[in-house]
Write a protein that binds this DNA or RNA. Sequence first.
DNA 1: TTCATTACAGACCAACTAGTCTGTTTGTAA
DNA 2: TTACAAACAGACTAGTTGGTCTGTAATGAA
Lengths: 208, 208
Amino acid sequence: MSLVRDPDQTRNRLIEAAFDEIYENGFQGMRVEEILKRTGLKKGALYHHFASKLDIAYAVMDEYIAEMVKDTWIKPMSDYKDPIEGITKVVLNIARGYGEEDFIKKGCPLNNLAQEMSALDEGFRQRIHNLLQLWISAFGQNLQQGKENGYIDSSVDTEVASTFIVAILEGCTSLLKASQDEKTLQSCWIGLEAYLKSLRPVSIQAKP
Amino acid sequence: MSLVRDPDQTRNRLIEAAFDEIYENGFQGMRVEEILKRTGLKKGALYHHFASKLDIAYAVMDEYIAEMVKDTWIKPMSDYKDPIEGITKVVLNIARGYGEEDFIKKGCPLNNLAQEMSALDEGFRQRIHNLLQLWISAFGQNLQQGKENGYIDSSVDTEVASTFIVAILEGCTSLLKASQDEKTLQSCWIGLEAYLKSLRPVSIQAKP
DNA sequence: TTCATTACAGACCAACTAGTCTGTTTGTAA
DNA sequence: TTACAAACAGACTAGTTGGTCTGTAATGAA
C-alpha cells in the first residue's frame, strides 16, 4: 500500500480543487493554474487525467456535485416520514448549519452553474438538467409517500409540487446571494413554510 | 443636427452591445472586441467613454438593466388595480410574448449576473441588490394597494410576499433555463398561481 | 530482473485579450 | 477664423492562460 503514487486519489484531489475553483469563480473564471496551486500538482498530472478544462468541469458535475446533491438533499430526507418536516429540517440544517457561510455568500453550486453555463454549453445544460431532475424526482417520491401516509393532501400533484419547491429553493438562494441580509432570509423562509403548509390535508391545514 | 458625431448615441450603442454580450456570455465571457464588432466602433471610442471593461458593465446595470426592470416589471403593473391579476398578466406576457425565446433560453439578465458576479465583485453585488430591491419594493407597493382595495387578505405581510414572489420568479426562470421543457414551465406556472391565490382574502379564496 | 505502461514534472508555446498611445477629425467657444 | 477640447481610429503592447511536449520515475506483469 505504497502511497507514493495513487492515481485515483490524485484524480479526486484535482476534481475537488476544480470544484472549489468553480464554486468561487464560476467555470469561466476558473483557472487551471489555480487548481494546480491548490493541489500542489503540475500540468502533467492534470492533463494526464483530464483532456481539457471542460473535461474536468464535466467530471466535477458528474462525480462531485452529483454526490453533493444526494448527500445534501436526498439521503437526509429518508430520516423523516413526513416530507414537509424533512424539507423544513434539511433546509434549516443548511441555512443554519455547516454550510451556512458558503451557501449564503456563494449560493448554490448547481444554480450558479445553471445560470452561467446552461445557455453557453449543451454538455453543461444536460448535466445540470439531469441533476435537477434527480433532485426533483427524489422530492417527488417523498411527497408521494407523504401523500399515501396522510401528510400531504390527496389533491396535490406531487410532480408539480416538487418542481416548484426546487424552484423556490433556487430562487431564495439566488436572492440571498445578492442581498446578503437577514430580512430577505426571513421572507424566503416564511414564504417557503407557507407554501409547504398549503400542501397539507385541508383538515390539518386549518389548525393553527 | 449633424449626426456625423453623436457621443451620447455612441455611448448608448456601446452599452446596448455590451448588454447583449453580457446577456449571452456573462460578464466574464464578454469580450471587448465583440462589442466593437457589434457596433462597428473601435477601441478609441469605447475607452473614451468608459474607463474599463468593468466600468461599461456597471453602466449596463445602472442605465440599461435598470430601465429594463422598470419597463418589464414595474410600469406595466400600473395598468391593473388587482396586483395578482397584474403579476399574472405581466408574467404571461413575458413567458408567451415578445421576449419568450430569449427569456426561456437565456434566463433573466439580472438573475444571471446575480449568480455569476455577486460573490466576486462587491460593485456588482450592490447594483444587483439595488435593482432587486427596486423590483421587490414596487411589487410591495402594488400588494399594499391591493390589500387596501380588498384584493389581498389583510393578514398578508406585503414585504414578505413581494420578496417571495420575486424569489419564485427567479427560481422558475433558473429551472427553465436549465430544463428547457414545457412540463417545468407548467409546474412553475401552477405553483405561482397557487401561491398568488393564497394571498387572496379568505372569503374569495374559498371560491372555485 | 526486465520492460512496457502508467503517472506524473515542468519547460515551452501560441493564442487571445484588456488596455495604451499616438494621430486625426469634428465640434465649439472666443 | 482660430484655437482648444472632445470624439473617435487603429496600431501596438504586455500579461495571461489553456494546452503541448519531452523527460523521468514509479508500477506491475512476464
